[in-house]
Nucleic acid binder design. Structure first.
Lengths: 156, 156
DNA sequence: CGGATCTCAGATACACTGACATAA
DNA sequence: CTTATGTCAGTGTATCTGAGATCC
């Protein structure tokens, strides 16, 4: 272990923004999934619960659009959350194709739990950066994301 | 499509660095895999060829360490590259466990092709950012990555 | 009819795990 | 005996594709 003096990353890779992004995202993803797995949760759960908390009950298609989660995966994640009593799925009386997904009190409690855990994870992720640097990073990523979100026809 | 006025991202997510990182990485990853797939290549191929070009012939274990690719996957990717004649695998006379992997002239040509394609992809990825902003982003990500690389015992 | 919604079954890329034989 | 290497088979996850059923 410890791979000492392993700065053997090829310079062609080290300066490549797409490489830097995917590699840092890999660590971010690992921190998040590990941290959430300890309490039996997934990233999908937080995304869905946070959306339901902020916007109120929604159809699964709406949830997919807001969270960026694919239709198919909203189905499975909602099954999971409903199985734990964190959300309820009821048919929409005005449109019988739709399910209206609603967050329950237990779901709100769960959301608080996830929010706290995620706050600690952000701290770990951004440890080497100062507060203004963190803001700058968030600002740059936000602009990148906004740019690519537009004209993304593949989002459900 | 066009998902008009779809700023329906929950604020809890929109400001979360781990979310911003993984989402932008998702677009970066898509641009890269799509761009490389058009010419029948993968991200692994570029990582391996670039490493071989910069550091010269290496064992598969070394390649795994430098590129961050898992041992098992180095095997498969090397098979792939060798099948196309981009690298050659020869036994190490001084250590008969090892294969020495060497890039071929065809491999160098392939690497140039991939480098060009990736340059165009970076342009697309970073389109909304000015040159100094790109530098700032690269700097911040580099520091994040260096921090998490240390003490990462899971790397092969 | 076109178009939206939900569901399931499967594919893909990437990362990882475990096991094994071989050889240092 | 312990460690490093290469190989293979298989797991897991986030994402996406395609199909079908239902309903507006």
């Amino acid at each position: 272990m410890d791979t000492p003096a392993d700065d053997g990353t090829p310079t062609r890779l080290a300066g490549l923004p797409s490489w830097l992004l995917t590699q840092t995202a890999r660590y971010a993803h690992r921190l998040v999934t590990d941290g959430l797995a300890e309490i039996g949760a997934r990233g999908y759960h937080y995304r869905l619960l946070a959306t339901l908390d902020e916007y109120g009950p929604a159809s699964q298609a709406d949830l997919g659009r807001r969270t960026g989660i694919h239709f198919s995966d909203v189905v499975a994640a909602t099954n999971d959350l409903a199985g734990h009593g964190f959300v309820e799925r009821t048919p929409d009386p005005t449109d019988r194709r739709r399910n209206i997904v609603t967050i329950t009190p237990a779901g709100r409690h769960r959301l608080d739990q996830l929010t706290q855990r995620l706050a600690r994870i952000q701290e770990e992720l951004l440890a080497p950066l100062s507060a203004p640097e963190r803001d700058r990073l968030v600002g740059l990523l936000t602009r990148l994301l906004a740019h690519h979100r537009r004209g993304d026809t593949t989002r459900p």
